[in-house]
Design a protein around this nucleic acid. Structure first.
Lengths: 215, 215
DNA sequence: CCGAGTCTATACTTGCTGGTAGAAATCCTA
DNA sequence: TAGGATTTCTACCAGCAAGTATAGACTCGG
């Protein structure tokens, strides 16, 4: 739906143009993968999206694998950035975690969301696959860290940080399975609902919540 | 890890033996898909697992697609069954939901869990793909129904049933991404942790909470 | 022990798609 | 406008894996 990506016919220095085109290739790949799935997308399909032929793609990218990797990275980087930003803040563990969740939802509903989640690192060679697993693991560790921080500062109740991280990441990573950018809530609204559930749980909230521990 | 599947060389009536072998083919396929991914698993691989050759598989199954479909179904059926069982009970919406979650975790950590979740219905033709989507949708609706029931009977607080269902299903469906039957918690323990998070949330619990819990 | 039905293997076809060789077009600089 | 670098195209290859034709082997009732 977002317009065609055409840095072909565009101005700027050589290097700059090349860079833009390469990005366009990655983005087109991401959209195609999302629409048809990695294995059902041929390079000709991607080339067609750009009104170009297959060998042209290879001028910007070494292999189909590399395209997938770059899509992966594009998404994961956004989340990693959000994590380290949260980390620099001074808010409570819970607040930081919530911030990360918001960024996570933004990233995962982007064009690259699908690739981050549905593409198997099996589809990447051992080389790139390992790098992706590394990135994923870092994010996982970061989430656990935030949960532990929250427990430490009292903003999060006692729980198993590992399982909480899995549950949270699972809920978030699943979004691309049902999210349709036409027909779904905007990312921020989704984030709100998720935060609500994860912070307060399903149990009916008892009245008399406010500060103070009168139960 | 669970031993080789060999109903080859086994007794029983003709029909019975055929049925057993067909099941064995499906199970072998499920394990292979889980280990290597659908697209990276050749029929020769599956045949090798059974110490048999590829054409033999075709004697029990019409196509690779059908194998995937049957794996899918094997897993989803377990969950659907759990749903309708829960439905027959008289417990509160929340209790019923929790029961479903437990069954869900059991199913999703089984050999078929991977297929239920990681296989794209894109890999199935329009025919089978539609049937799978149907099954998935039924389960989704069932979860939403339980949430609404819980809200109605007061066992669940006010919330958006659709988003809650998505969050819950996401967390559960993600399990195959990290679950390793050697190295992870047993299914029941995972279910416990998940229930804990989803029922009570991350916010520190104020004293004097609701009546305790269970098994 | 025979032959109809059941089961399995050998050996092949076929289509698709990732990837490439090398020529042609285009662009920039001088 | 010449000529070298950059960019894109046409045409092709190779390999893999799904699926099949067909013949051989096993089982079991009669």
């Amino acid at each position: 739906m977002p317009g065609p990506i055409s840095p072909w016919r565009v101005t700027g220095t050589r290097e700059r143009r090349r860079e833009l085109k390469r990005d366009a290739v990655i983005l087109a790949a991401a959209r195609a993968f999302r629409a048809r799935g990695y294995h059902h997308t041929s390079l000709d399909d991607i080339a067609a999206l750009l009104h170009v032929t297959k060998p042209t793609l290879y001028y910007y990218v070494a292999s189909k694998e590399e395209m997938l990797f770059e899509c992966f990275r594009a998404g994961l980087d956004r989340i990693a950035t959000a994590c380290s930003k949260a980390r620099r803040g001074t808010a409570s563990g819970r607040e930081q975690l919530i911030e990360v969740v918001r960024s996570y939802v933004e990233a995962i509903t982007s064009d690259f969301g699908w690739c981050m989640v549905r593409a198997e690192d099996q589809d990447l060679g051992p080389e790139l696959g390992a790098r992706i697993r590394q990135l994923k693991s870092e994010i996982d560790q970061e989430i656990r860290r935030l949960v532990r921080a929250g427990i430490a500062d009292g903003s999060i109740g006692d729980c198993d940080p590992k399982m909480v991280a899995f549950a949270l990441a699972g809920a978030l990573n699943w979004i691309p399975h049902w999210y349709r950018d036409n027909a779904s809530l905007p990312a921020s609204a989704i984030a709100d609902r998720f935060v609500e559930v994860f912070v307060h749980g399903l149990a009916p909230r008892r009245e008399g919540a406010l500060p103070g521990k009168s139960s």
